[in-house]
Nucleic acid binder design. Structure first.
Lengths: 95, 95
DNA sequence: ATAAAGTAGTTTATTTTATAAACCTAATTA
DNA sequence: TAATTAGGTTTATAAAATAAACTACTTTAT
């Protein structure tokens, strides 16, 4: 392939947005990510699971007072994958 | 949305590779695109159709001697869409 | 001349993905 | 106490990507 493969886990608008967000803020909760990305809760829930299963983010579910709270944080593996994705896609963008 | 939407037609590894290719060479045939992208013929056929239906490329099917030949060329609309896509995705890549 | 293999694709079927809609549990407000 | 809101998850549906099978013809070997 003349074009490097793009990590399918990151080549998704919502998951890429989530990663982009997490990289800049280091930690964010479900509601904040939902607001910033404009995603529906259901979709976000599913995509966070996928990123988590891939080991790209750590998800922490706990209670804050009486309310459930889910916070997310990018892992080193996630950071590496993101950087690699950026390098790969740059190849497609500048001919 | 804090993140600009990514044109779904271009946010596909193969279609993006095809566009990237066509932009640099201005015109290419089916076999060449297949080789350069590493795509299977079936997949490429489908994706070229989509790009063509969207008006992003012009597809010309003719005979060269006794063999069928399909050549593709990016349109102005395709060029515009590609440039717009590049701008949008840059937003995701550098936090 | 004819069978086998190659070229240039298209069509159909399957799998994966993305997304929305419905649902759940608990807390708050009217 | 009944409705609404918050913070999600699960299930169902629609859309996409991909591979496999097929078509139609050409070239090569026998």
């Amino acid at each position: 392939m003349a074009f490097k493969a793009l990590d399918p886990l990151l080549h998704s608008q919502l998951r890429l947005a989530v990663m982009s967000l997490l990289i800049s803020v280091e930690s964010a909760d479900f509601v904040y990510i939902k607001e910033q990305t404009g995603a529906t809760a259901g979709n976000l829930s599913v995509q966070l699971d996928k990123l988590s299963t891939a080991g790209y983010i750590d998800v922490n579910k706990h209670f804050e007072g009486k309310k459930p709270k889910t916070t997310c944080k990018v892992t080193q593996a996630g950071l590496d994958a993101f950087e690699s994705y950026v390098k790969s896609i740059q190849q497609y963008l500048k001919p």
